[in-house]
């Protein structure tokens, strides 16, 4: 698994690319733009019983059912009431597999230059779940680039 992560790092790390920034509790996270399908407001979420609590349920996105993941729950944080800035970012993998993530607020799309991208520490006891793929540091501050596949797929 670590090999694959390195491969991906090299890809994004060497070329850089556009990143969508969003915040949870004032921490800025980023997601590579290639995963992002669209951003929608909070919709009525249908609860699906007997699944882990970070999966909030499914929504109807123009006739398709899309599972919704709470990033707060995923990161072990307390959930806060949804407000008008709460968003669902709809991600798409492998061309058809969709999932939505609930975030506090979406900020902007920024260009990450290769020299601003650093790798995550290889130490054992930080970033153990590998949700963070890279760290982007520039004049505006530090952003944590998330590994979408792991965030969504890993059980």
């Amino acid at each position: 698994m670590s090999n694959i992560t390195k491969e991906e790092n090299k890809d994004f790390g060497s070329a850089g690319g556009e990143v969508l920034l969003f915040t949870i509790d004032d921490v800025v996270y980023g997601i590579e733009i290639k995963y992002i399908n669209e951003i929608i407001g909070i919709e009525q979420i249908t609860v699906v019983p007997k699944v882990p609590d970070y999966i909030k349920g499914i929504i109807n996105l123009r006739g398709k059912t899309v599972p919704i993941i709470s990033v707060r729950k995923r990161f072990g944080k307390e959930e806060i009431p949804y407000d008008e800035r709460t968003c669902i970012i709809v991600l798409e993998f492998d061309g058809s597999n969709q999932a939505g993530i609930i975030v506090d607020r979406v900020r902007e799309v920024t260009q990450a230059k290769p020299e601003e991208i650093c790798v995550t520490p290889a130490n054992k006891n930080v970033n153990t779940n590998h949700y963070i793929k890279n760290i982007i540091e520039n004049a505006e501050g530090i952003k944590l680039l998330l590994n979408c596949e792991k965030l969504v797929m890993e059980q």
Binding site: I58, T65, P67, Q98, A99
Partner: peptide, 19 residues
């Protein structure tokens, strides 16, 4: 059918056949 992500969690074994 349920989205593929949910199928990872054995929803079918819990008495739900689809949505």
């Amino acid at each position: 059918p349920f989205p593929p992500l949910l199928n990872n969690f054995n929803v079918k074994q819990n008495g739900m056949s689809g949505c």
